[in-house]
Amino acid sequence: MASSEVDQKFLGKLGKQVEPNNALLASMLFKLLGLSINLAEHTAKARKQRKLDTSRATQSLELYFHIIWLAREGLIMLEQYVLPMVGDHGELKVLAFKLQASFYHIFVLFHNNPSVSSMGINTPIPGIPPIPRLDKGKGVERSDAASETGRSSVQPTHPMESGAVGPPPGFGPKIPEPPGAFLLPSVDYRPTAREYFRQAVALADSILWGSHSLRLSVKTEYAAFLYECEHDYEGSRKLAKDTIAEVYDASEGMDDDMFHDACELVTVLGKMMKRGLESENAPVGSSAPPVTMPVPAAVPTAGMDNFI
């Protein structure tokens, strides 16, 4: 998520490439690199906590605010300064579209309404009782039993005697906004994130070869989005399986660094391909064996340069 180590490598590499001809674009890429490293650390910490405490202003809530703020600022920089200048830079265009989807992925995980993740700020926390609702100007709501005991046996002769008068039409009690609404609107971000992921995948398929590490990064995060946010478990596993098959079918050579990254991403995709199946198929009291995936058989070719 906004971004992987592969994305961070390409942010630095592409920033150096465009710096001689476009200092502004290079500056934005380097800023996005720093922001992405910071954001990755915060999201990793949030994943360890698994659930943020929304009952009071604790450190976890501050962590949530920081994640949303970083993702929002990164998206602004990306859409205002990077996307308009990607031009014909193939790898940079794929990376920019992928980061756009990745920032929305963070919005879905941490700030979606309705909540779709255990890390979301709107997720109910088991064991924490709801805060009693206060009736402004009339004290705390009392139970029906208490109301019955205090009610007069004489029938009211005037509307005011029947109890408190409700507010006029259109002036009902205001629904409190969820925490973080001051940073970002509390809406459903899944359709937007889904569309940006599809655009990034289509662009990566049309520009990059099957074993390109940036292409694998796009599909790895899309598979994670399908599983965690869309709850399309079968679709996520199928995407991971198809991506691994595409790696094996690729015949292009890679340098050592890209080969290493591709091997790691294939291993991650292999685990995602089996995700959720171990608990369904394994007998009670047993654990499924770890998934080990063979690395792609591409061999670096002497003198071969990236064609993009």
Rank of each mutant, 00 (worst) to 15 (best):
S4G: 06
Q17H: 08
P20Y: 07
K31V: 02
S36V: 13
I37N: 02
N38E: 10
H42V: 06
A44E: 15
D53S: 06
S55P: 02
R56D: 06
S60E: 15
L61W: 13
L61I: 09
I67L: 08
G74R: 00
L78T: 01
Y81I: 00
Y81C: 05
D88E: 10
G90M: 07
F103M: 03
F103C: 04
I106F: 00
V108W: 02
F110Y: 15
H111Y: 06
N112F: 03
S115R: 12
S115Q: 13
S118V: 10
G120T: 11
T123P: 04
I125P: 03
I131V: 14
L134K: 11
K136A: 15
K138C: 05
E141V: 10
T149K: 10
S152I: 06
T157G: 15
H158V: 06
P159Y: 02
M160G: 10
V165Y: 13
G170H: 10
P176N: 10
E177H: 11
L183K: 12
A200Y: 11
A202T: 05
S206F: 10
H212Y: 14
S213C: 05
V218F: 04
K219P: 00
K219E: 03
Y222C: 10
F225V: 12
E228M: 12
S236Y: 04
D242P: 00
Y248R: 09
D249M: 13
A250Q: 05
E252F: 09
H260M: 12
A262I: 04
L269Q: 09
K271Q: 13
M273T: 02
K274W: 13
L277A: 09
S279W: 11
A282N: 06
A282F: 05
M293Q: 09
M293E: 05
A297P: 02
M304F: 05
F307M: 12
